[in-house]
Amino acid sequence: MLEPLLPIGIKPGRPPVHSERQLIDGIRFRTRTAVTGQFQARVDTKGLISWDIWVDATIAH
């Protein structure tokens, strides 16, 4: 079902740069994060979210 949407390799016979699993996981990640960003933007526009900034001053050597 998703196979027609996957990219074709640069040259025939060469191994793909990314596995199909990596491509699907990347698509799923972008879908999840884009929806979250849109939700946060809508809530922020309505003034229903507060943006508290916390800074950790820990320094590791």
Score class of each variant (00 low, 15 high):
Ile49Pro: 01
Ile8Asn: 08
Thr45Met: 10
Leu2Lys: 08
Trp51Cys: 08
Ala41His: 12
Lys46Ala: 15
Ser50Gln: 07
Thr36Lys: 13
Leu23Cys: 03
Pro15Gln: 08
Ile10Leu: 10
Thr58Pro: 00
Ser50Pro: 00
Ala34Arg: 15
Leu48Gln: 06
Met1Asp: 07
Thr58Leu: 10
Gly26Ile: 04
Gln22Cys: 06
Pro7Met: 06
Ala41Arg: 14
Gly13Glu: 06
Asp56His: 02
Lys11Pro: 05
Pro15Asp: 04
Arg21Pro: 00
Leu6Pro: 00
Ser19Arg: 07
Pro12Thr: 02
Arg14Val: 10
Leu48Ile: 08
Pro4Arg: 01
Arg42Ser: 12
Gly26Pro: 00
Lys46Met: 08
Leu48Lys: 09
Asp52Tyr: 03
Val35Pro: 03
Ile8Ser: 07
Val35Asp: 06
Thr58Tyr: 03
Asp52Met: 01
Leu2Ala: 04
Pro7Val: 01
Trp54Ser: 14
Ile10Asn: 09
Arg14Tyr: 07
Ala41Thr: 14
Gly37Val: 00
Ile8Leu: 04
Ser50His: 09
Leu2Gly: 09
Val17Met: 04
Ile27Val: 14
Ile27Thr: 12
Phe29Leu: 15
Thr31Phe: 12
Ala57Gly: 10
Asp44Gln: 11
Leu48Asn: 04
Leu6Ile: 03
Ser19Phe: 03
Gly13Arg: 07
Pro16Ile: 01
Glu20Gln: 05
Asp25Val: 11
Gln40Tyr: 12
Ile49Asp: 07
Ser19Met: 02
Leu5Tyr: 12
Asp44Trp: 00
Leu2Met: 11
Arg30Pro: 01
Phe39Tyr: 12
Leu23Pro: 00
Leu5Arg: 01
Lys11Gln: 06
Asp56Trp: 00
Asp25Met: 13
Pro12Met: 04
Leu2Cys: 12
Gly47Leu: 05
Ile59Ser: 11
Ile53Gln: 05
Lys11Asn: 12
Gly13Phe: 02
Ile53Tyr: 02
Asp52Ala: 11
His18Gln: 15
Gly37Gln: 02
Thr36Phe: 15
Arg32Gly: 09
Ile10Tyr: 09
Arg30Ala: 13
Gly9Thr: 05
Thr58Met: 02
Asp56Ala: 04
Pro15Val: 03
Ser19Val: 00
Leu5Asp: 08
Glu3Phe: 13
His18Ala: 02
Val35Ser: 13
Ile27Pro: 01
Gln22Gly: 00
Ala57Pro: 03
Val55Asn: 02
Val35Leu: 13
Arg14Pro: 03
Ile8Tyr: 04
Arg32Ile: 14
Arg30His: 12
Val17Phe: 11
Pro16Asp: 13
Gly13Ser: 02
Arg30Leu: 15
Val43Gly: 06
Pro16Ala: 13
Pro12Leu: 04
Ile49Gln: 07
Val35Asn: 15
Arg21Met: 04
His18Trp: 09
Thr36Asn: 09
Arg21Tyr: 04
Lys11Trp: 06
Ile10Met: 06
